[in-house]
């Protein structure tokens, strides 16, 4: 399979196989006009299988979203066809308006203008909880 290498843009690499599509959706990449490749189940020496997302546009990605979905992913910034920066990814302490609280009894379900905010409450267990009702993400 041959995907063009990109000139100016971002490559999200080492995504745990299977999480690429989820990340694509949460980053709302469908709304971008740029050419984007989501490559699933790429053979990887380190990981066995991995997903990769290539975005041919010089955009600022919300790294918190990537850290939330897969803190093991790496972000490479490409300029003029050259890798100029590797961004390290960490689990964010708070997530604002990335995911929605699913608890129907939560105040966010009736007050439409409220930000949906989640806090990291257990880093080892990767647990995020709604700041309003404490329901797990």
């Amino acid at each position: 399979m041959n995907i063009d290498s990109i000139q100016n843009g971002v490559v999200i690499d080492h995504i745990t196989a299977g999480l690429g599509m989820h990340l694509y959706e949460l980053l709302d990449l469908a709304s971008l006009d740029a050419s984007i490749a989501l490559i699933k189940n790429v053979n990887s020496k380190k990981m066995g299988k991995k997903d990769i997302i290539k975005i041919d546009a010089d955009i600022d990605l919300n790294l918190d979203v990537i850290g939330f979905v897969d803190p093991d992913a790496t972000v490479n910034i490409i300029k003029d066809g050259v890798l100029v920066e590797k961004r390290s990814i960490d689990m964010p302490q708070t997530l604002t308006n990335v995911i929605k609280c699913k608890n129907p009894r939560c105040i966010t379900s009736s007050e439409q203008e409220l930000d949906h905010i989640f806090k990291l409450t257990d880093k080892e267990g990767k647990v995020y909880r709604c700041i309003y009702c404490e329901t797990k993400a």
Binding site: C106, I107, Y132, C133
Partner: peptide, 10 residues
């Protein structure tokens, strides 16, 4: 007092 969870925080 409010029936929704998290209302007091808001």
């Amino acid at each position: 007092r409010h029936p929704k969870e998290g209302a007091a925080l808001v």
